[in-house]
Amino acid sequence: MAHDVSVIGLYILDVLGRPVSKIPERGNVDFIEEIRLTVAGTAGGTVVDTAKLGLKSLAVGAVGNDEKADWVLATLAKHGIDVSAMQRLDGVPTSATILNIRPNGERPALHVRGASDHFDLLPAFYDQVFAAPIVHLGGTGLLKKLDGEPSRRLLEEAKKRGCTTTFDLIAATAETKAIVEPMLPFIDYFMPSIEEAQDMSGQSGPADCAAYYLDRGAACCIFTLGGDGAFYAHKDGIRLQVPAYEIDIVDTTGCGDAFDAGFICALHHKMDPEEGLRFAQAAAGLVATGLGSDAGIVSFDDTRATMDRWSVKPGT
């Protein structure tokens, strides 16, 4: 099977409930409207959304050998995603998160790190994984075995083989900078949130952050700005900022992953940068209108129509 994109990194089972305004005291019970299970993570959420947007997608990561892994792999396959590069690891649980979604969409989380800490992309997988024209690495910061030099090597190999590389991370701190900086010369599209970009660089604002990462080798920086939209800075000098859409937010889980998937889809369809950013914003906005990282997105055509139909937030 020829793939459009290989999505490498963090695969998680999310258990989400909403709306949760407080945790009951002692052993008491409270009642909420909705509980869902989703495949999530900076790779898992992204690969589901690329598949829903019509791309032939290869999932590349690790799960445990438990009931959670059965559900994750079956759900990926249900979306038409190739799971032949997913590893099942004995002796560790599948990475999983419990999220209590607040009425305003915030999402305090409890996480079991599990199998993703033990995942490594072995050279035996290189021919399969790097046959796709686009390679996304998502989850740096929670990929204990893959973080650092192994990630730098795989991105370098992807570039040697002519792939376009996209990158996102999670749980970024000032210490994450030492992991990320050696990878930058092999990243075509560096796509953290502005908060992550600032925390790692020590800079303030998207323009200064972009200058920092471009100076260290990234070809293009794309920062998600939450309610202020998204910022794009390319080494060729192009600078763009697109506004956020006016939507009613239910849950922000997976919005960054959906943005990544939307922009990867835009690259596949050879959209220009501004159109690509607007399409990625629409994908992220759709996910925010429902519960979980796979909510909202139906198809490429529906997302494109949503992009044209939605109004932007005033003042952004």
Rank of each mutant, 00 (worst) to 15 (best):
L76H: 02
V72C: 08
L53R: 09
L58P: 05
D66Q: 10
T75G: 01
E67C: 02
A69Q: 02
S84K: 14
V60G: 11
A77I: 01
V47N: 08
A69C: 01
R36M: 02
K78I: 00
S84V: 11
L37E: 14
A62S: 03
R36A: 05
V47T: 13
W71L: 15
A62I: 01
L55Y: 02
A77M: 09
D66H: 11
D82E: 13
T75A: 12
A77E: 14
A69M: 03
V48E: 00
V63L: 14
G44Y: 05
N65D: 04
T38H: 08
T75P: 01
A40D: 06
G54I: 05
E67A: 11
T46Q: 04
V83W: 08
A85Q: 03
K78W: 00
L58Q: 08
I81E: 07
A69K: 03
E67G: 02
G54Y: 07
H79T: 00
E34A: 13
V39N: 15
I35W: 13
L73I: 15
S84H: 14
S57I: 06
G80L: 09
K68C: 00
V48M: 02
S84L: 14
I81G: 03
G64Q: 11
V83K: 06
V39F: 15
D82G: 12
G54N: 08
D82Q: 13
A62P: 02
A43S: 14
